Computed example of a mutant assay.
Amino acid sequence: MKKLLILGAGEMQLPIIEKAKSLGVYTIVADMNASAVGMQYADRALVVSTMDLDMLKQYALELDIDGILTTSDAPVNIVASISEEFGLPAMSSNVASICTNKYLQRKLFRENQILTPSFYLCNQSTELSSFCDFPYVVKPVDSSASRGVQLVNGMEELRKAFENAMLYSRHHQVLIEDFIVGREFSVETFTQNNETSIVAITEKMVIGEKQGYFVEDTHIEPARISEQEYKLIADTVLNAIKLIGLDNCPSHTEVKLNDTGAYIIEIACRLGGDYITSDLVPLSTGVDMLGNLINCSLGMPIDIVHKYHKCSAIQFLNTLNYERCVNFVKSSYSLAVVRYDIKPYSDAVIMSSLDRLGYIILQTDTMGKMEEILRMIK
């Protein structure tokens, strides 16, 4: 039986743990929280921080693992380091460093003529008064889930956003970058043996921009784009992946598209979160992204051939649509609902994905039907 070390046992890691169990893989799950939901599903639960490289290396040696993976950003560097030391398939340490540091990505893309927002690397000593060409986007160089990310339109907002972003940066560095106007997408890929395949392009909508936040509110697959737009996005992302040197791992790339081109906002060398790869990609294409990640991490062939062509979406609950969404899941239209999670109502401002009030995952045979449902609940 293959032994797989999974870093992280929270709610977002539970699907990969359950998938590994269903495939007959011996699952070793590490999390510093002994009560994390995924720990109870593990064949072996390790109460250790997913960032404790020395301890995890010791466990990897003692337990003679066949592979290691994570679905979170922070432990990616740990996965790469252990994989390199034990000869396991995963991204390299250099790739992991680039994909977990927004500054390194921006610098690499700018030097190689890949469209990306203009940016400025800042620390606590940066003189903010020199920034006057608003609006800007302020973000930590090494955070995720929109934590610490804010759009600012004036100096007072900039100073407050800067201090907030600094709180979320492990390296105590912040990017101040130009705001790119455009439609938003994410691109899900797998690279194995230096061959990259685009599995899906997801259309994304956000809420909170007027308040300065970028919280993803709706994801739709397949993205409603033309063949020309698909080719532009695909070519840009594939060039960026080749430039970084990704291999033996998935990637999740965020893109903004406007009349001047496709801008790379960020590339992560992991599966896309927010239920994109655990739910939406399988529902729209039949491709098992979680199973592929497990196989890839164990050095086994992946299967990214589309089994069918359907439509899927996730609508997150917020203060404006909460009542409509609750009523919807009780209606006859709920036949399109794959699953949902509704949290108690709160009128708190949604500043990151952690503040959302639940979700509804949908699947339909046609985009017209999907659009009809989304109009009802958005």
Rank of each mutant, 00 (worst) to 15 (best):
K2V: 00
I6A: 04
G8D: 04
G8T: 10
M12T: 12
Y26E: 14
V29C: 06
A30H: 08
A30W: 01
N33R: 15
S35T: 12
S35N: 14
A42Q: 04
R44E: 11
L46W: 04
L53N: 01
L53T: 10
D54L: 08
M55V: 08
K57E: 11
E62K: 10
T71S: 11
A74G: 00
P75S: 05
S81W: 04
P89T: 02
M91Y: 05
S93C: 14
N94Y: 13
A96C: 09
A96F: 09
C99K: 11
K102Y: 09
Y103R: 15
F119K: 11
Q124A: 12
Q124L: 14
L128K: 13
C132R: 03
D133R: 07
K139P: 00
A145W: 02
L158T: 08
K160G: 00
M166W: 01
H171D: 09
H172R: 12
H172S: 13
L175K: 06
G182V: 08
T189V: 04
T189N: 08
V199R: 00
T202M: 09
F214E: 10
I220V: 15
A223G: 08
A223D: 11
R224W: 10
Y230Q: 12
L232C: 06
D235R: 05
N239D: 13
V255L: 03
K256M: 09
L257Q: 10
D259E: 14
I264N: 08
Y275M: 05
L280Y: 15
V281M: 08
V281K: 01
S284F: 01
G291I: 07
N292T: 09
N295W: 06
P301D: 11
K307T: 02
K307E: 12
Q315K: 15
Q315F: 03
L317D: 00
Y322R: 12
F328I: 07
F328T: 04
L335D: 15
V337Q: 06
D341P: 00
I342T: 05
I342K: 14
K343P: 01
Y345P: 04
D347M: 06
M351R: 13
D355H: 03
Y359K: 02
L362E: 09
M370G: 05
E371R: 10
L374W: 09
R375Q: 13
I377G: 06
